[in-house]
């Protein structure tokens, strides 16, 4: 190499040096700000430690973990989270896919209308979630209760009634994230070749048949990506719960795992236990994101081929 290009070494860095100089800053930053803190919290998760107390961490083995895993309350929070994830992701999937099916045609101002629909997902969940509390309020001027008033005897206390509080969170999350599903589904739908439908028309296929055997199989890889991503994101749900139902209230009706973890770490300052909890959560998320990235790479390979 050097014999072929003797001038290259004299002018600037070699490829290897350049490669290292380009990648290293990012890697060092990620290791310093992500890996090192995570290792520290792994260390702390085996200790009894309160960040608010001056006492040094005391080694207690796996007791933090065993206590957490034996605690029925923790499983209650996982249950709440799972309940939320299933409801919210299912609602987002059907509404988003439905919207995409509606939008998958030519009409005037299509780009503008699509962008308008996409607006909610770009906005700050926490700021929007706060304002939704006003829209969902049961006492004065609650917009949703106003629109529902012809169908209801008395206004619903969306954020105060433990039975419907989760539904309120699901509504806000669905409003924010069904556009995400719509965007990805729309991309899948517009990539389906038109001639397939034309061929089906020649064979006098029914609309359902076309949907079931042409649309669905071709869109499903992208839909799966969207579903996985939303599942992972919904599993981490923190912002909306924090403001909409005031830190997981009423009671613990909407206390998700993330919310509980926040309380454990920054309300009770039970740092050692919180670190253990964080690691349990971490393992689940890493497993999920592993699947996600596998599918992402597969879809990427597919789109590059076509």
């Amino acid at each position: 190499m050097q014999i072929n290009h003797p001038h290259r070494m004299s002018r600037g860095m070699s490829d290897y040096q350049l490669k290292m100089a380009f990648i290293m800053p990012t890697m060092i930053l990620l290791i310093l700000m992500n890996i090192f803190p995570l290792l520290w919290s792994l260390y702390l998760s085996f200790h009894r430690y309160k960040a608010s107390m001056p006492a040094a961490p005391r080694f207690i083995g796996v007791r933090n973990y065993s206590r957490l895993l034996a605690d029925p309350e923790i499983w209650g929070y996982f249950q709440t989270t799972a309940y939320f994830v299933i409801l919210a992701v299912a609602a987002q999937f059907f509404i988003g896919f439905g919207l995409a099916l509606l939008l998958n045609r030519d009409f005037r101002y299509k780009g503008f209308v699509t962008t308008l629909l996409l607006l909610p997902m770009m906005l700050s969940p926490v700021v929007v979630g706060l304002f939704w509390r006003f829209i969902l309020s049961s006492d004065n001027a609650g917009l949703l209760n106003f629109f529902l008033s012809p169908f209801l005897k008395s206004p619903i206390g969306w954020t105060t009634n433990p039975k419907v509080a989760m539904l309120a969170v699901v509504i806000v999350d669905t409003w924010m994230w069904s556009p995400f599903m719509m965007l990805i589904a729309l991309a899948g739908l517009s990539a389906v070749p038109k001639f397939l439908y034309e061929a089906a028309d020649v064979d006098r296929a029914s609309a359902w048949f076309k949907f079931r055997w042409i649309t669905l199989p071709l869109v499903s890889p992208l839909l799966l990506i969207a579903l996985l991503f939303r599942t992972m994101d919904a599993f981490k749900m923190f912002d909306i719960v924090y403001v909409l139902t005031r830190e997981g209230g009423p009671g613990t009706a909407t206390e998700t795992v993330s919310m509980n973890l926040y309380k454990l770490a920054f309300r009770n300052y039970n740092t050692g236990k919180a670190c253990a909890m964080a690691y349990i959560l971490l393992i689940i998320i890493v497993a999920l994101s592993n699947i996600y990235v596998k599918y992402l790479n597969r879809v990427k390979g597919d789109t590059q081929e076509t």
Partner: peptide, 22 residues
């Protein structure tokens, strides 16, 4: 690349505990 992406996937609440101490 997966490692780089996975740092983004971590829940903020998990990362923030050690960052807070640091």
């Amino acid at each position: 690349l997966f490692f780089i992406l996975s740092t983004r996937m971590l829940p903020p609440v998990v990362v923030v505990i050690p960052i807070y101490l640091m």
